[in-house]
Amino acid sequence: MMSADVSDRAVTAAASHEHESPFAGPDEAFEAAKQGMWIFLVTEVLMFGGLFVAYGIFRGLHADMFQEAHRYLAVSLGGTNTVVLILSSLTMALGVGATQRGQRDRALLFFGLTLLLASCFLLVKYFEYSHKFHEGLLPGGYFRNEHLKHPKAPLFFSLYFVMTGLHLVHVLVGMGLIAWLLKRTVARQFGPHYYTPVELVGFYWHFVDMVWIYLFPLLYLVG
């Protein structure tokens, strides 16, 4: 949102009776937008932080349960998704770089690839979740798997679904943002002189990737 602010004003300031930009120039506006994004990411860290604290507390209380329950997650699928997301961070970074150098076609290619990799992530997650549903490996009160007997095991799946679910919501938001970048890149709205939204969506996407890099070992590899 904040990024669009800057661009729209550049276009419409003269035409409408809105304020001229509060900033002295485009460089100041860019710096401010970046600072705003960093602060926003701090709030994201704190929001996920609550979940990591809950994870830490229950892991401390019931380490044996985590040991037992984590075997019911598919390490191969989680591992695949880790690779997929790290690759998507690479393509995102390449897309941002291409935009900064004014290579529009290259930027389109890399944003498209990023979107494709994100879709792979969703697909794998879909198979994982439906398997869990099928096996009755569900949160808290809905848990009904017969093999996993540890009395606290439902809590593990509560944490699993809440943590990966909130991450999934972030992936979806990120995909929406990348699609928006694609649309605006097609419309030739970015270039070496103006690429604030591209840079900021890049930040966001790397953050989403980073959260997964913590989630994967904590949930899948705890044993």
Partner: peptide, 28 residues
């Protein structure tokens, strides 16, 4: 505020999906 956000979200999940993180009856 983000910590409140996640807390309220978890409580909403308690009510909707019985996640049990804060519910002693479900081990929370």
């Amino acid at each position: 505020t983000p910590v409140l956000a996640i807390t309220l979200l978890l409580l909403i999940f308690e009510r909707l999906f019985r996640t049990g993180i804060f519910d002693p009856a479900l081990g929370g």
